[in-house]
């Protein structure tokens, strides 16, 4: 690519166009709901990709942050009758603080140990959400009131489509800014060589903490939006399999590719719906796709296709 900035902002424009044009082909509420789910997953994945793809730190517990945001909204609005937006903000801040507190000890670990620790953290959160029934409603989940903006009730699938789409565009824009900034280069340096990064004056622990907290806060906001959009949330949202699903979206779409994360999220959200007719075979197909992509396109879909197109042009 002659001008990398062109690809970057070109991608953002494509995203905006897709978000703006999609309603033209969405026939009914069912499809809108899938689109909203896709957007929320994509939101989490853009953040998670900063951590996994760019900083090179695996997290197998990111669903916990999504759920913490969601439950903060759910609990504060139902049990304490907070304003929804206030609850969303409080949830994001609180999740950020939790992420900050666990970041230092956890991110000192590497590779499999980091995988284990984040996994353990995620499972602890999901177990607490399951058990503290008085607060969370337990395994049955908790109903969440409609989000209100002044007198407006944000209820319809279309409304949520625009909220999610807007959030995705904004977060993608911020992620692109970050990646191509001094802080972003420091983040990517961690993936390249922590040792070299340190000797160039990069505070490794601090930089890791920053990305971790950022990705956790993005997940929390997505979780809050999810809780209001679905008007219901269960501890499954924090579960191990949900964390795995998020990582898989990032890796499938392409690590260290913001648009890859979005594509991965879209595929893995839409695919199970498309396979709904073959419900029985859903897991077989999903598992086979995962293994196959990782073997044949280990860089993920978007970077691999990008390379293919570049080669074909020459």
């Amino acid at each position: 690519m002659a001008n990398p900035a062109l690809g970057r902002w070109g991608g953002l424009i494509v995203l905006i166009v897709v978000v703006a044009a999609l309603p033209l082909v969405l026939p009914n509420k069912f499809y809108y709901d899938i689109a909203v789910k896709t957007g929320l997953n994509a939101l989490v994945c853009v953040g998670l990709n900063l951590l996994i793809g760019y900083a090179g730190q695996i997290s197998l517990g990111h669903a916990a942050f999504f759920a913490l945001g969601g439950y903060a909204s759910a609990v504060l609005t139902t049990r304490y009758e907070w304003n929804g937006f206030l609850a969303l903000g409080a949830g994001a801040v609180a999740t950020g603080i939790v992420a900050y507190l666990v970041a230092r000890p956890i991110l000192r670990l590497k590779g499999h140990y980091l995988a284990m620790a984040t996994l353990a953290f995620g499972i602890i959160v999901s177990l607490v959400l399951n058990r503290e029934i008085w607060l969370t409603g337990g395994p049955d989940g908790i109903t969440v009131p409609t989000l209100r903006l002044g007198d407006m009730r944000l209820r319809s699938a279309e409304t949520w489509y625009w909220i999610t789409g807007g959030a995705l565009v904004v977060v993608t824009y911020l992620a692109l800014n970050l990646i191509h900034s001094p802080s972003g280069r420091a983040i990517r340096a961690l993936h390249g060589s922590e040792v070299a990064a340190e000797t160039l004056g990069i505070d490794v622990a601090r930089t890791k903490t920053m990305v971790f907290v950022l990705s956790a806060v993005i997940a929390a906001i997505a979780g809050s939006l999810f809780a209001h959009a679905d008007r219901f949330i269960t501890p499954n949202e924090a579960g191990f399999l949900r964390s795995v699903e998020l990582v898989t979206m990032v890796v499938l779409g392409g690590m260290a590719s913001t648009f890859g994360a979005i594509v991965g999220a879209a595929l893995l959200t839409v695919l199970p719906q498309a396979l709904a007719g073959f419900d029985e075979f859903k897991h077989i197909v999903l598992g086979a796709i995962l293994v196959g992509t990782m073997i044949f396109l280990p860089k993920g879909l978007v970077p691999s296709l990008g390379a293919l197109i570049r080669r074909w042009r020459r």
């Binding site: 695996i58 990582v247 598992g287 990782m294």
Partner: peptide, 20 residues
């Protein structure tokens, strides 16, 4: 492949086995 990729492969395999 890297650590993360291998983790995903075995996770994919486990979903596949469960599915079967």
């Amino acid at each position: 492949a890297g650590v993360v990729t291998l983790i995903i492969i075995t996770i994919g395999a486990s979903i596949l086995v469960r599915g079967v």
